[in-house]
Design a protein around this nucleic acid. Structure first.
Lengths: 211, 211
DNA sequence: GTCAATTTTTACCATTTGGTAAAGACACGA
DNA sequence: TCGTGTCTTTACCAAATGGTAAAAATTGAC
């Protein structure tokens, strides 16, 4: 019973649990929760299906484990918003990090998007307990920056939404982006440049008094 | 064989095919393609499963039919971009229409998003043949507007992506938005206001010479 | 009302899928 | 090398699911 108490995991356990989660990320992100099968995950992981069920209690536990681990990584860039930094550069750095994550972790982005689109049935508690406090805190911070005249005032919540939406779009909708940007190969750099421009023009004070 | 040739559909056929597609939109948009079952669609439509298969050849045909019908509606606002209109108001009107669609047709938005996230397996031909020409045409139009100094220059393709991303976000990620905007009830109006500001500040020429 | 065409139901079926039982293989400290 | 606990495989199963055959019911033109 490898999952029972707080036993130190053996090397084999560590290795195989990692393999399973890697495979599951690949399969879940491509086919969605219902579309993914344990057989696919097993094949991708190079293990047998019963062997997978030796390490995890079932399909749902694998999915939830993935989502919970992902959440931390996902929120790191937002956590990194520094109250003591320069407001506009802080926001732009956040945008850049999110673009980088869409580029480097598209499977994670799609896994998350799929879960949310279907009503967040398995991750809603985590949204309320983990995401919401952080979101509120950072929105308040941005609001103070605006009140102080360091950023032009807009609704911080919708600002954050638009940063999420625009950056994750490149991962989540890559099938569409790929069709429409068929030839371009500098698309990543173009996207980052465009988004930096977008949020700079939105937020940069007309009379920069930030120092 | 109601689907064979170009026969005029009976009133019963018209009514039941509509019922089935309505039900399927509901179910597919909530659970994704694989997550939806014919039994669910049948229950939602108030028909028996075999009866549904009398009107459609199978699950996939229902899905493809939905996607193809949706595509037209979905692209209408982009089609409406008028080369003879005022550039900035045209763009802002496009944004407003897309916000309205996210508000009024969230199921359609999620159905589409789900298909794209999973690599557009069933709608890719339609993307290439239907969406791409329109996208290229409208991007060229926006590019000319920029060249003429009516809009500040940015990459039109990424501009369009960001309009799609920000507007559809409110439908596709409504589960998340709902958690984070728990109390707010004027969220729709706020979102529209924010997005109009966002794209105005991005595109409005410093020295408005558009007339 | 009659009758042919359309529509709906009943009774199935084969496959897929998440999951289990239990035997067997293996690792590794004593 | 022995033996115990860890890991893996083989052989299954029950439920769900997409789909079919054919009988029964209904509709509508005449």
């Amino acid at each position: 019973m490898p999952d029972g108490a707080a036993k130190k995991p053996s090397r084999i356990q560590t290795r195989n649990r990692r393999r399973i989660l890697d495979a599951a990320l690949e399969v879940f992100s491509r086919h969605g929760y219902r579309g993914a099968t344990l057989d696919q995950i097993a094949a991708e992981a190079g293990l047998s299906k019963p062997n997978i069920l030796y390490y995890f209690d079932g399909k749902e536990e694998i999915h939830v484990t993935l989502l919970n681990r992902l959440m931390d990584t996902w929120l790191d860039p937002l956590r990194a918003l520094d109250p003591d930094g320069d407001p506009l550069p802080e926001i732009l750095e956040y945008v850049r990090r999110k673009v980088g994550m869409a580029r480097d972790l598209p499977r994670e982005s799609r896994l998350f998007a799929g879960e949310i689109i279907q009503g967040a049935p398995r991750i809603r508690p985590h949204l309320e307990a983990g995401l919401r406090p952080l979101f509120d805190e950072k929105c308040a911070l941005i609001g103070r920056w605006m009140d102080a005249g360091h950023l032009r005032p807009v609704d911080p919540r919708h600002l954050v939404f638009s940063i999420w939406a625009t950056t994750q779009h490149y991962a989540d909708f890559s099938a569409q982006v790929g069709v429409l940007l068929a030839d371009t190969d500098a698309a990543d750099a173009d996207a980052e440049q465009y988004l930096v421009t977008l949020f700079t023009r939105l937020l940069e004070p007309a009379n920069p008094q930030s120092r």
